[in-house]
Amino acid sequence: MRLIRNKLIKYIYRQIKGLPKAYIPRPDFPTKNLSLNKTLLITCSSWFNQEQQTAGTLMREGFARGWAEVCGPAKLIPTINICQEIDNYEKPAIFMSEFEFNDLSFTEIKKLRDIDLFVWVGTHPRKLAKLEKETLIDKSEIEISLNSYAKIMFAEPKFVWNAYGEAAREWYQGWIDDGLKWETIYPAVDTSRYYPEIKLKKYGHISMAYVGGYWEEKAQAFEKYLRPWENVLYTFGYTDWPYENYSGRLTPSEERQLYSSVGMVPLVTTPAGNMLAEITERYLKAPACKAFCIADENPALREIFNKDEMIQAENAEHFQELVKDYLNGKIDIDAWKENGYKAVQERHLYKHRALQIKNMLDV
């Protein structure tokens, strides 16, 4: 009864405050193979809107589709409903992020202890002060991480994870020191969204294209890597770019067609992303569309692509040299397209990540 009361209070509070609620019109991802029966429940915070094609939305859907392909059915669940939902399944796996722990009480979290819970975390709280000092990270993210730490430890998850490479061990070692298992799980490609679809009449005239938001921290990298090529670079994204050829937003199909058709896609992350050796979805979805890519010096890149599968710059100056070579026709771009695409298909689809997760839960 106390749990029901807490849920009712939380619901009323949301109504009074006008807080958003997770909007999930298509929650179910059934499996075609009925012999696969391990259910995955993916929690979604109040900000979640399945109709908005954000990275957080697409990533959760990607994990759900990959899981349904090789492990069992998957379902997107509002975080505030998770304690009721788990009673409908026999020991389901539960995907949560640290952000969603703030939606649950300690009483509710205790119910998750005997379930196959794994948690998407960030930098360990003992390193957050240093991270804030050395980067332009959003302070609200730091506050959420600090507030969720005690609840994550109380939940006793089977493992915690992020897309940080080995070079970032300093930033996640604290989770291991606290007695939790750590697993690096990189993003992957949702094959229902990203695949080759060439539209040369629409995008074939573009020599370089970058898709993504523009803000202060990312701008630090853009100034070094992309600004020198502003006259030939076309940028797209949900925020305005102070660049000559900013061309607005793209639909998911247009993004796929762009990657498949332009001359080159630069893979550039933020200073914090390089420091944390963080792989974002961009490093994989562009080559999944057979884009020719030149990557920045992200230290985790060689953990997902070998030197024959992706060109990587040693620094910003080397990146400029590689771009010049590309523009002057000195690089066999077709070979690089094929090698990158093959690597994605063999190792970096969401079904590969689903099997990685299941193996960790079965340990």
Rank of each mutant, 00 (worst) to 15 (best):
I4A: 13
R5F: 15
R5Q: 07
Y11L: 15
I16Y: 11
I16F: 10
K17C: 14
P20S: 11
R26D: 13
P27G: 04
P30T: 11
P30D: 10
L34F: 13
L34S: 14
C44D: 07
N49F: 07
V70T: 14
I82G: 11
P92L: 07
E98P: 00
E100L: 08
E100S: 06
L104S: 06
L104E: 02
T107R: 14
K111Q: 15
R113I: 02
V119W: 02
K127R: 13
L136H: 12
I137H: 12
K139D: 05
S140W: 06
S140A: 09
N147W: 04
K151Q: 13
E166H: 15
Q173N: 13
K181M: 05
W182K: 03
Y186S: 05
P187V: 03
A188W: 01
S192P: 00
S192W: 03
Y194G: 09
Y195S: 04
K201N: 15
H205D: 13
I206Q: 04
G213D: 06
E216Q: 11
A219R: 09
E230T: 11
Y234Q: 00
Y234W: 13
S247L: 10
T251M: 03
S253H: 04
Q257K: 01
S261Y: 01
T269H: 11
T269C: 09
P271H: 05
G273Y: 02
A277W: 00
E278D: 01
T280L: 13
R282N: 14
L284Q: 11
A288K: 06
F292E: 08
C293G: 01
I304Y: 09
K307H: 10
Q312N: 00
E314F: 06
G329S: 12
K330V: 02
I333P: 03
I333Y: 08
G340P: 08
Y350V: 10
R353N: 09
K358P: 00
M360Q: 14
